[in-house]
Write a protein that binds this DNA or RNA. Structure first.
Lengths: 201, 201
DNA sequence: CCCTCACTAAAACGAGCGCTCTATTTAGAG
DNA sequence: CTCTAAATAGAGCGCTCGTTTTAGTGAGGG
């Protein structure tokens, strides 16, 4: 067997959660998609549906972080790097037929009222991604406070733009957000010290 | 009776959809919350759950538009107006115990794969809100292209920041987004023509 | 050889889902 | 007062949900 049954369950659950949310995804559907039986699911995850979801979200979180890291590293210029993130997200979104958006948003919104571990996992995910952007900005010489605020805004805007892009079935919201976020980053004086020559708008 | 049964159903459905999403909200729960019986719900909405949801989303859309309009009108300065939007959203979010976020995001994400009317209603909502921001910017003298891109970015960023705020149970993401969006708007030359004196950062 | 134990398999349970159906009540027109 | 249509009321349908239970499989160590 190439991938273990447990891994197949986690991966299948991750995809389904991303597309249908927590409530909309059934345990039996996960088992079927993972080519596993219900017994196997409960064997590996005695905690039931919630335990599967938490594992899946953590997996998706790391997967998304890798994508973000690569996009951020693809350009020394922080403004260009953020644009690259938006471009990458737009591309994957289009290729998936507008279904594979942010892997935690849907699950997070559905479990807001509850105190489940899912909430915590989603909060950790957002914090982790924000940290990636912040580190990039810090490495580029931005002061701590500016880097923190910019990183938070970048993640929020990308998150929102992805939802908008999905609903409208168009890459434009993400492309526009990437362009405007780049402009926002360039508006900081610290940026000039890093890359004196402003790229053409 | 003060409000009609039909209205009570729509309002109750709107609140529940906002907090639990489409799949997570049951018809019986809507009826109970609205102090109506199941028979009444199907009497007024022969289309079933989806018809109730569409009506509820349209109601929420207008409600949210009113909030947005008031916040935008509260300040002649477009940057300040956008900040006011973020502040208003943060306040309502905190007061609701972080449950009453964007009224369409959850429902939109859950029904992405489908071709239901819910999708269309959510897309219309986002487009309408964006239009409000765009009109504000146009009134302030921004050129069409800039106004369009900025409005899209503002809505996306507020959307994403609201989700982040809900997950983290903190107003900060919204406040930061408001501040950075204001800075972005001020970075446009056209802004200077409108309000020559830049407010302190 | 057998025993163990991780793993697979499937049947079944109670609960709740969206929805249909049949009554019954209410309200206004003639 | 009568007739009618709108509105309310709730039992019950078929189905799926998450979970539990029980049985069966196969590989590795004594």
């Amino acid at each position: 067997m190439q991938t273990s049954t447990r891994d197949r369950i986690v991966i299948a659950a991750a995809r389904l959660l991303q597309r249908q949310g927590y409530v909309g995804t059934g345990i039996k559907q996960i088992a079927q998609e993972a080519q596993a039986t219900l017994g196997s699911v409960y064997h590996f995850f005695p905690g039931g549906k919630e335990a599967v979801a938490v594992a899946a979200i953590k997996y998706s979180t790391e997967e998304f972080a890798t994508l973000l890291r690569e996009a951020l590293d693809s350009d020394d210029d922080p403004a260009g790097a953020v644009s690259a993130c938006a471009r990458q997200l737009a591309e994957e979104l289009r290729e998936s037929g507008w279904t594979d958006g942010c892997p935690v948003t849907a699950a997070a919104l559905e479990t807001l009222g509850t105190e489940s571990e899912i909430q915590q996992a989603c909060a950790d995910a957002l914090r982790g991604w924000e940290q990636l952007v912040r580190d990039k900005l810090l490495r580029c010489g931005f002061p701590a406070q500016s880097a923190r605020e910019l990183a938070s805004t970048v993640i929020s805007a990308l998150e929102g733009a992805e939802v908008t892009a999905q609903v409208n079935r168009s890459e434009e919201p993400l492309q526009v957000a990437g362009r405007q976020l780049a402009r926002l980053i360039r508006s900081y004086d610290e940026y000039e010290a890093y890359a004196p020559v402003l790229p053409p708008m």
